[in-house]
Nucleic acid binder design. Structure first.
Lengths: 146, 146
DNA sequence: TTTCATTTGAGAATCATTTGCAACAAAGAC
DNA sequence: GTCTTTGTTGCAAATGATTCTCAAATGAAA
């Protein structure tokens, strides 16, 4: 059983829940995508296995609580997520014009964030940094003003 | 006319739009709340003036584009905003347990963010930093595990 | 006060997400 | 094995925030 599957199973057991075939399938799908995904995307990946969209929606919060995925940007009215293991935390730069998403490492920001956390006695579970604006391609063109 | 009203009017004119009584009312409401608010909240504040919820929803994106408000945390499936003028940018620390929202200044992080932006040639319009976890009150109690 | 474009309220329509429910498993207890 | 209990799932229906439609209202300008 893969690393994150073990982690998920442990988490589930602690809540008296089970690691079912469906849940394992969803977890696997989430880790097979190395970019953002939304519920629909996962569903597309596994619907062949007769997993319903409702189950995907039911599983997402579990993965979230288990600390295996994280909620990131919201695009087109849809929540988007990404897996965490082997996917170091990063900031998202979202272009308002072309909707490109650029990712950058958080390491430059982490020291300052952790310092703040200590001061607040806050236990960090998830960090989400989204910066919107115009990417280099769009800052001159498409949008003539601003 | 207040500062941010001037700003809004300018913005609207640039798009061939008008600063109507309703829009001014919504802007005013947005600036009267010194915390996060959602569409419904603004609506409650001004429905006595016969402004419809639809108009609130229609105006929010304008305020956003005009750089007068910013989208922050999403709670209970609702988009939340806050005004910007006189309300320096800050990070949000969201407690998963008691849902408290703590705000901290961004100044410690801005230099690093701006540096990154320069490297990416990215034009920042909006920065949203949300850190979730457990606040000091909840990290020991309520939730026995974790 | 005519004209023409923009706004608006009201309610219907959308669409992601949640839920209710009945049928299904899984894991023990016997 | 066979009960029993408890969690799981697919399906369809419900929910609820947000968006859209459209006809009436308003505003600016001539």
């Amino acid at each position: 059983m893969i690393d994150h599957e073990v982690q998920f199973k442990k988490f589930l057991q602690k809540q008296g829940l089970k690691l079912t075939r469906n849940r394992a399938r969803i977890l696997e799908a989430a880790f097979s995508v190395h970019e953002h995904f939304d519920a629909e995307k996962l569903y597309d990946l596994i619907k062949a296995d007769n997993v319903s969209l409702a189950t995907v929606y039911r599983t997402l919060p579990l993965l979230l609580e288990a600390g295996l995925i994280t909620r990131t940007v919201r695009i087109g009215g849809r929540d988007r997520f990404e897996h965490i293991l082997g996917h170091p935390r990063h900031a998202h730069w979202l272009c308002e014009n072309c909707h490109a998403v650029i990712e950058t490492d958080l390491s430059a920001l982490l020291p300052a964030i952790n310092k703040e956390a200590r001061a607040l006695k806050f236990d960090i579970q998830n960090i989400s940094i989204n910066i919107s604006g115009l990417c280099w391609k769009c800052k001159g063109g498409a949008n003539d003003s601003q």
